[in-house]
Design a protein around this nucleic acid. Structure first.
Lengths: 104, 104
DNA sequence: CTCTTGCGAAACTAAAAGGTTGCGCATATA
DNA sequence: TATATGCGCAACCTTTTAGTTTCGCAAGAG
């Protein structure tokens, strides 16, 4: 079963969950209230996110709080790095063009 | 059919295609040579990437060159922005801790 | 102890993903 | 003109995904 960060963030619900718990850790029930699906469906998403280590569970009595593991998000950032170089380069080329236009 | 940038980069083959043509525009056949699948399978990936406007086709005779549309990659970067704030913040908090430790 | 609540796990279903083969068409080459 | 090449598209198959319903268990509340 393929299970990586990119596949994890492919689903819009999972992206929303990530954004939601980025602010504060939440229980599955609390998270599910924000969506139009069942608590079990959310639990499945949480399981996938856990397997990718994008989130971490913290048991508190019978409640389980899930919080974001920010470090995994950096993997995406790392992959983007190669393209950031390209678009920054294109911008600097555009800057050059604009500078030359102003000089005329 | 769901079709957005995040779903597009979920597949490892598509990520590899993106990295490949980031350097220079390539034809489907040339791209397929880099992978262990058929030309048609690559064409399917190219179609998905096109629909997400992550790549752009340029016809040249009977050959079609696909090139990266770097601007769409920025959407991912934009989404990451919210988390970048968090991890930079955590780093700065860590910095504070380290500074205080040094002061002792 | 009994009932409620919060949760994960299993079994099932519909839809989507990712691959294959086969086809037709346009362009290049002999 | 005949043949080879580059490509997209459609049909088909298999596996994965995302959801549902049902269940069982552990932790609080009465």
């Amino acid at each position: 079963m393929r299970r990586d960060v990119f596949q994890a963030i492919a689903d819009p619900t999972r992206r929303a969950i990530i954004s939601l718990i980025a602010l504060q850790a939440m229980t599955p029930n609390a998270i599910a209230l924000h969506f139009d699906t069942s608590r079990q469906a959310i639990s499945k998403h949480l399981k996938i996110l856990s397997e990718c280590e994008l989130i971490k569970a913290k048991q508190e009595g019978r409640e389980i709080y899930y919080e974001l593991e920010i470090k995994r998000m950096k993997e995406i950032d790392k992959w983007l790095e190669q393209f950031r170089k390209i678009w920054e380069n294109k911008f600097s080329q555009l800057d050059d063009v604009l500078k030359k236009l102003k000089q005329k």
